[in-house]
């Protein structure tokens, strides 16, 4: 047989059988960072995250001790003035972000994991499981996210773990919807059938065949949900159901200090600005990732067959 297909030489003969592609997400993140939109978003996000993460180490005063007069205007010793009880606004600002970020991250992770499991199961298993999962999703979706979280917190009380669970649960249905629609498409592809035909257990089909093909939509969902988490948790803190005083927290600070808005606006404006910058930054970066994933900015590469994710289809492809 003389039909061996010529292939370009490879650098070294492989010694093991690699299984699953792992570099997809780094590819997409890297490509997103090369776009102007991605750079701006990432820059904003990193600045706020740095303030929240490193801030506690640089806080000049204790966040909870009364060091000045209530609503003292900015001065040399207290660059952002004093808050409603005479605590240093700058110190509280520097110390008040990490908790918010941690809770938001945990809630997002919980929501995305639950949502992905629900969405993939619904799409792949079809029939009764699909109906069950999606009707539950519909019921939860009927409550606005903030109201749903409030409901849980007001019944059980403001505990940090509950905040994570409440916000995470309120995300899950939305993630499930998005992931289900993409997973439906993937489940129909022949490579899934090629594995089913071997009698592979369903759980392994979902984890090893379908999930790896949902990496980019999951990345986009994670970014979006993180933004919402921050807004919801800051919102809950603002109305008193979130992080409890006297702990410093950006959402809480806005509420506590709004009565002194005219005396020392910085006590309200500074935390509000940080929350705004963080959400805008995250959203912008997520948008850049989504655009890269969709290949919007890569029309040219698509033509010459250099796309990262998908393959170039031959001209004569018409399925039966």
């Amino acid at each position: 047989m003389s039909t061996a297909t010529a292939a370009p030489p490879s650098p070294a003969p492989p010694t093991t059988v690699a299984t699953v592609r792992t570099r997809e997400w780094t590819h997409v993140l890297g490509a997103a960072l090369r776009t102007p939109r991605g750079r701006v978003g990432f820059g904003l996000t990193i600045v706020v995250v740095a303030v929240a993460a490193l801030g506690p180490a640089f806080a000049p005063h204790s966040a909870t001790s009364f060091v000045t007069t209530p609503f003292a205007p900015p001065s040399g010793k207290f660059p952002l003035g004093g808050d409603v009880l005479g605590r240093d606004v700058l110190s509280r600002l520097l110390d008040g972000g990490w908790q918010l970020l941690l809770i938001a991250a945990a809630a997002t992770a919980l929501g995305v994991v639950l949502g992905a499991i629900a969405g993939i199961s619904a799409a792949y298993l079809r029939g009764a499981p699909d109906t069950l999962i999606m009707r539950v999703v519909d019921v939860i979706l009927a409550f606005p996210q903030l109201v749903f979280a409030l409901l849980l917190v007001s019944v059980i009380g403001p505990k940090l773990w509950l905040l994570v669970v409440a916000v995470g649960l309120s995300h899950a249905p939305q993630v499930a919807r998005v992931i289900r629609s993409t997973a439906l498409d993937v489940s129909e592809r022949d490579f899934v059938k090629a594995v089913e035909i071997l009698g592979t257990p369903r759980r392994r089909v979902m984890a090893k065949e379908i999930l790896p093909n949902l990496v980019t939509p999951l990345m986009v969902e994670t970014g979006l949900r993180m933004t919402y988490s921050i807004v919801i948790i800051a919102g809950l803190s603002f109305i008193g159901f979130g992080i409890q005083p006297p702990a410093p927290d950006w959402g809480l600070m806005i509420n506590e200090n709004r009565i002194g808005l005219s005396e020392n606006p910085w006590a309200v404006v500074a935390p509000a600005a940080l929350i705004a910058l963080l959400t805008i930054g995250l959203n912008t970066f997520t948008d850049a990732v989504a655009r890269v994933a969709l290949g919007v900015d890569r029309a040219e590469q698509a033509v010459v067959g250099e796309r990262i994710g998908g393959a170039e289809l031959p001209a004569g492809m018409a399925s039966e």
Binding site: P14, V17, A18, T19, V20, R21, E24, R189, D190, F191, K193, A194, V195, I197, L198, G199, T200, E209, P212, N213, V215, G309, G310, A311, L313, P314, M317, S319, E320
Partner: peptide, 27 residues
Amino acid sequence: QYVFQNPYASLNPRRTVGGLVAQPLEE
């Protein structure tokens, strides 16, 4: 064993050729 019509759809794009061919063995 079964070979599908469209080779652009029947191979999981996230697996290497080695991983794809090894799948039945693993099973």
